[in-house]
C-alpha cells in the first residue's frame, strides 16, 4: 500500500522552501525522469520510503529523527525545478 508523490509537498517544503512535487527527479536505477508527484510513497514504515514509479527502486527516504528531519537522496542523480 502506498501513497502518490503529492504527499511529499509538506516535508519537502520544510527542506527546500519550494513545492518540490513539480520538480523532476532522475532515478539512479533506471534513469527515468519524472516529477516527484508521480513517485510511490510508502509512509507506513519507520520513515517515508519514496520509490520510482517505473522501476520501484528507492529514490529517497525521509526520517524524522527526534527534532531533526533527515533526507537521503541515494536514488536520485538529479533534481530539477523551475527557476523561481
Amino acid at each position: 500500500m502506498h501513497l502518490d508523490g503529492n504527499v511529499l509537498a509538506g516535508p519537502l517544503l520544510e527542506l527546500f522552501r519550494e513545492d518540490m512535487t513539480t520538480a523532476t527527479a532522475r532515478c539512479a536505477s533506471c534513469g527515468d525522469v519524472s516529477v516527484l508527484a508521480t513517485a510511490m510513497v510508502y509512509d507506513a514504515a519507520p520513515g517515508w520510503c519514496v520509490r520510482c514509479h517505473v522501476c520501484g527502486d528507492v529514490l529517497l527516504t525521509f526520517v524524522r529523527a527526534g527534532d531533526r528531519l533527515r533526507i537521503d537522496l541515494r536514488g536520485v542523480t538529479a533534481l530539477e525545478l523551475p527557476a523561481g
Binding site: 502506498h2 510508502y42 507506513a44 519507520p46 520513515g47 520510503c49 520509490r51 520501484g56 527516504t61
Partner: peptide, 8 residues
C-alpha cells in the same frame, strides 16, 4: 498488528 513496510 500494524503493517509497516518500506516497499511493496
Amino acid at each position: 498488528f500494524p503493517v509497516l513496510s518500506a516497499g511493496p
